[in-house]
Amino acid sequence: MTGRRRWSTEEILDTAAELLSTSDPESFSVRKLAAALGTDSSSLYRHFRTKTELLRALADRILLSAMDGYRREGDWKQRLTALALRLREAFGRQPQIAAIWGRYASSGTGSRLVMEEVLQALRAAGLPDEQIPARYHRLVILIAALIAAEGGIGAITPEEHEQGMELFRVAVLGADPERFPALAHFARDVRPLGAERGAAFDDLLAAQLADIEAALP
């Protein structure tokens, strides 16, 4: 009698990533993953005790891929900028998982590598040690939020995008100038949330780093 195939942790994560590429974390389930693998849920719980633990592992794997080949170059601002862009690029390849990083804390190797580099760069900037944890927290929250926002936009289908654009045009160009005078005034210049995402990411990151620089002794 042939025994049931045993799936490796990486094979499970690969299949989970494929399922998430056509769905979202809310509708994703261990039962669906088990069905895709041709097994039952109990066999997967040997690798991951909960769905949350599995999602954390997926996010951490992306963090680990972002840090693969990373080299410290330039001053502290250049290092943090390069790191943020690497994270953005890595999650951009799997946008459905981008929101998971901000939602579920990870304690894996990828997470520790990112934390270590951010903390070391802030220390290299010359910040007093007592200020570094708070600055670290604000910076990482900003980066995770920007990446999650981009991931949410990047994960929608072309049909959903076009529908959203039409609703945006109706809401903005059709605004009543008496009730929404400012909106009506700027209607032809206001852009939807998905527009110029790269420039917004760069500007907000640069502003945060400038704020850190202004606080240096």
Rank of each mutant, 00 (worst) to 15 (best):
T81Q: 02
W76Q: 01
A59L: 03
L55I: 03
M165I: 14
A200G: 08
L19V: 11
L173I: 15
L20M: 05
L209T: 10
A200D: 08
M115V: 07
V118I: 00
A90G: 04
L33A: 06
A182T: 11
G74E: 04
R56C: 12
F91L: 00
G69P: 04
R103D: 08
L122Y: 03
Q94W: 09
T9D: 15
G3S: 14
T39D: 01
D129F: 06
A66K: 00
G151I: 09
E117S: 05
L204M: 13
R188M: 12
I12G: 03
L13C: 10
E53P: 07
Y104K: 04
I132R: 01
M115R: 04
L55S: 01
S21P: 08
T52D: 12
R135W: 01
S43C: 07
Q78F: 10
I12F: 06
T157R: 10
S23V: 05
R179C: 06
Y104L: 06
A175W: 08
E11M: 09
S21K: 04
Y136L: 10
A215W: 13
A182P: 07
R56T: 07
L85C: 13
H161T: 15
T50M: 00
F91V: 00
G174W: 09
F48G: 00
A187L: 04
A134S: 07
I100T: 08
Q120N: 02
E130T: 03
P95D: 06
R5S: 11
D14Q: 09
L146S: 09
S27M: 09
R86K: 11
L55M: 03
P95W: 02
T9R: 15
R123G: 04
A145H: 11
Q163L: 12
T2G: 12
L54H: 02
A199P: 05
Q208P: 04
G92Y: 04
G152Y: 05
A105Q: 09
R197V: 02
D60T: 00
A199E: 10
S23E: 10
G102I: 00
E53Y: 07
